[in-house]
Design a binder for these strands. Structure first.
Lengths: 334, 334
DNA sequence: CTGTTAGCGCTTTCAA
DNA sequence: TTGAAAGCGCTAACAG
């Protein structure tokens, strides 16, 4: 099961066998055929670890997910893993997943991964302001891409993002066209960059229409969405539509509306931003801005390979989003 | 950033430095202190790849998830990844995730992983009868554990399972005690072992109570559950309760009941088997048998380490399940 | 076209 | 208690 075995069997040098199997380099066709035949016969698979040591790279991409003690329930991560693992598999690479406490104050996971040579590049998610992870990677000039954007548009950071402006614009256009004039944004307190960007995009889009912005914030989960929506719905002049900045929040809004006895979409329209499967089977199915997380994750792998091999990337562009109209949006009642 | 650097800096041999850092072996306390201090100073992190090559093991655990072209939406896998990655991180190991086509007829992913020395053991999920993956691993005596059970109770297979009998029994006991006498099982056509086990457990538990079994089958997803339930609900003598063998199916049942104008739980009680977060926020929140997927995945890592190091495992026991009573179960109407 | 040599960074003998 | 030497399996550089 090693090159040496094949070499001995065929009376060749290990080098020649290696070359023949690599598929390039100078080897006679005859030798190549013999080697390949023998390799097939004994079912040779190269030792990836040895190859990595020699090549000085690991052909693996890292991903850190939050350590939530068995409670990880964010569809975002399964999408990221799905997309990244698929692309990595296509490239004969590994996706290495480790957990870290969500605070990321403890860089041990990242250091083991990065400095131990286990991976060639890292996919970062949920970056916050002054994220220590970022500095660590920049200091080492280690290849990485940041999902959902990095704070401050640092040119050294390769971002993987959607065009938040046009995504929010599409949602507001849809609602505005339906006749809504009071549209709230259900945002969150979470310190992630995309949260802020979405808020800005919302403010701009609302201002362009001469409407009044209303932004609610809470924890970035279902309960948070529920609480935010419940408070807004108590208001005398409650909004006729809500744009939720994440799927979990949107599902909380839906629950709040139901418990308040409001009909969705007639008493309240809801648009979510995301792509969770839960949105399709919610009651009613949720209108949403689809964010192609898996595709973005697949691209992340390509970008990392490019960064590793060429030290730069072909200017990554924002991914297109898509308004998927389902059953939580309609014209407001008078 | 290598042992050599530290060795040169301190005028020691690489061997000594290695020993000092390993924490065992014969090194004077003084030398050890000096080495550790210097290692800290330059921020030494051992090259994991070199260590792996030398040790002949990779300190990594593999997991193959279905390649669903960006559509992976099964909460099962995120739980598995979460639990396995966390335990692996605790042990300073990696979790390597790759995708493969769900048919698993193509063993390339597995062969690259296993024979390339990239991992020390593999976590298998969703095994089917005569699964080619199983034979491949058994042939090579490669450490692996099978999630959700392997067909046929092969003694060479380390299983990670719940006690299906007592899980189903708990669900049926709950429903029976509430007064239900017509309880259907919404199963699926999926060829996985746990599906069959659940059906058997259901038959037994129903028989013990002198009731008549009713088993419906369809695709193992939300739509499947919807279709199965819709058909049952058309029946003159429709069941008053349904036990869904997976969460996705249960959510489909809920949708069918709603569209049929039935009140859940009063017209129809539903119990699910699983642990998805979606169950907590369904309307109404779903009564379920909680299956501790993440804990099982964490144990999977321990079992693989044990198999690797000792060639055997401390007889793994079935994981306990728990009936979580929420709002989809109540006494039947007359 | 093929072989020899060297070395990736580490750990493990075996000697001193 | 320390060091020298060997080698994990592979690839790259340099000769022939």
């Amino acid at each position: 099961m090693s090159l040496r075995q094949i070499a001995q069997e065929l009376g060749l040098s290990v080098t020649t066998v290696s070359r023949a199997l690599a598929g390039y380099g100078d080897v006679s066709q005859q030798t190549r055929d013999r080697v390949v035949a023998e390799a097939d016969r004994i079912g040779y698979v190269p030792n990836e670890v040895a190859r990595r040591l020699q090549k000085g790279r690991s052909d693996a991409v890292g991903l850190v997910i939050p350590d939530s003690h068995g409670g990880l329930d964010d569809p975002f991560f399964i999408k990221v893993i799905d997309g990244a693992a698929r692309r990595a598999s296509e490239l004969d690479m590994d996706l290495v997943v480790v957990t870290a406490l969500p605070t990321h104050r403890d860089l041990r996971s990242q250091r083991r991964l990065v400095e131990g040579g286990r991976i060639d590049g890292l996919i970062l998610t949920r970056l916050v302001e002054d994220d220590p992870r970022l500095q660590h990677l920049l200091d080492r000039r280690f290849p990485f891409v940041a999902f959902s954007g990095a704070p401050g548009a640092d040119p050294r950071v390769t971002e993987l993002c959607i065009d938040e402006s046009s995504a929010v614009e599409a949602a507001l256009d849809h609602l505005h066209t339906l006749g809504h004039r009071s549209i709230a944004l259900l945002s969150s307190h979470a310190p992630f960059t995309f949260v802020k960007r979405r808020e800005e995009a919302y403010r701009d889009a609302i201002a362009r229409r001469g409407l009044r912005p209303r932004i609610a914030r809470g924890p970035m989960n279902e309960q948070g969405g529920y609480d935010e929506a419940a408070a807004l719905l108590l208001d005398q002049r409650r909004p006729t539509a809500m744009l939720a900045s994440t799927d979990a929040i949107a599902l909380g809004v839906l629950r709040a509306a139901r418990l308040a006895g409001l009909s969705v979409p007639h008493d309240l329209s809801i648009v979510s931003m995301g792509d969770s499967p839960g949105l399709r089977i919610s009651q009613p199915p949720m209108t949403a801005i689809r964010i192609p997380i898996a595709d973005m994750a697949a691209q992340a792998v390509d970008l990392i390979v490019s960064l590793r091999d060429y030290g730069q990337v072909p200017a990554p562009r924002a991914h297109a989003t898509e308004l998927v109209i389902r059953d939580t949006t309609a014209a407001p009642r008078h």
